[in-house]
Design a protein around this nucleic acid. Structure first.
Lengths: 192, 192
DNA sequence: GTCTATAGCGCGATAGAC
DNA sequence: GTCTATCGCGCTATAGAC
């Protein structure tokens, strides 16, 4: 696949637009202006908007989870792994000139306006992330570096919800620096 | 103001639609079908869609913060107050037959697609909530019922981000029951 | 205040030439 | 694979009768 693969450029533009403006704020016209192609040509690569969304979610989820699994596969301490995991969300927020939130945070808000295949993709992304967090938290508990009461699955949901929601609030308030402090505070609480 | 005030009915319908589908998923046509009025008539009460959004955010913020201030004004223990505050978000999630998220969680996601007045309204809602949480957390720290390291403002942002984000995730995954457990887990962590 | 009718726009999508 | 041209739709918004 060439670097200037049109399909890739379309996906890049679509992802950027959705992370900033939402699904309904992304149009074939917007993409065409970014990529430098006529909007009718986009239909050659993605006949329907749903096709584009499905492909985009596949790519996003694969990329993200690949990085997460890379972190989990290291020999780092659980606390370090968790910090690195959280920093992925920080990196998204600070990427590019415009502040972006996680693709699946945007789609989660607009979920009831999506069609079936993408709804399941978003849910799978959430579930996959929480599963990774469960693994990470269990390792930290056994290791003694995490000390908290209550179920591990609930704590995983707590962490993931905070990361997705914290991004939204931080972007709106322009307090992306504080988002880092919030994550550190979370780590302190988990460490007990 | 009569109970069947058309203006009120329009606001009710708009709020319900936005909490379920987002701003772009709410149209004058949708509202007209719910209220039982022609869509052109809605413009009599709210000439532009922005006018409707501004009025809706005013009403929502006033109502919500009035309830919060009512909780703060009681003689309940800080821990009880915080639990009651969090339960407001649970109540929203479980209200009606369709699951709804906080109006300002939806608007936070779509923020960059909104116009100026509403953007500030959403930011003010976030700030007002975090200010109340700061007051509550300080009282709990002095009282000895909350024990956590780090700044109070950061902890307030952590709690608020979790509540707004946790709603989105819970709605998507259909785990509204777990959202309750997440809140209890948060309280345990704050209590130290 | 509500109605019918319509203007004007942007959108997703398709047909057909090159 | 990209282009021009166009269709059909839903939307916000307005004009004018009742």
């Amino acid at each position: 696949m060439k670097q200037t693969d049109t399909k890739t450029l379309i996906l890049d533009a679509a992802q950027d637009l959705i992370q900033r403006l939402g699904v309904n704020g992304m149009s074939y016209q917007d993409i065409s202006e970014i990529v430098g192609i006529r909007k009718a040509s986009i239909h050659t690569h993605f006949p329907k908007k749903d096709d584009l969304l499905v492909a985009l979610l596949d790519r996003y989820s694969d990329r993200f989870l690949r990085i997460v699994d890379g972190i989990l596969a290291t020999s780092d301490a659980p606390e370090v792994k968790l910090r690195r995991y959280c920093s992925l969300f920080e990196a998204t927020l600070n990427s590019g000139s415009q502040e972006k939130v996680c693709l699946c945070a945007m789609l989660g808000a607009e979920l009831t306006a999506l069609n079936h295949p993408s709804v399941e993709q978003v849910r799978n992304f959430y579930r996959a992330n929480e599963e990774r967090l469960v693994t990470l938290l269990k390792a930290g508990q056994q290791n003694g570096s995490f000390r908290f009461t209550g179920e591990v699955t609930v704590t995983a949901a707590l962490i993931f919800g905070l990361l997705e929601g914290g991004m939204l609030i931080a972007r709106a308030q322009g307090t992306t620096n504080q988002f880092h402090s919030v994550i550190e505070q979370l780590l302190q609480l988990i460490k007990g």
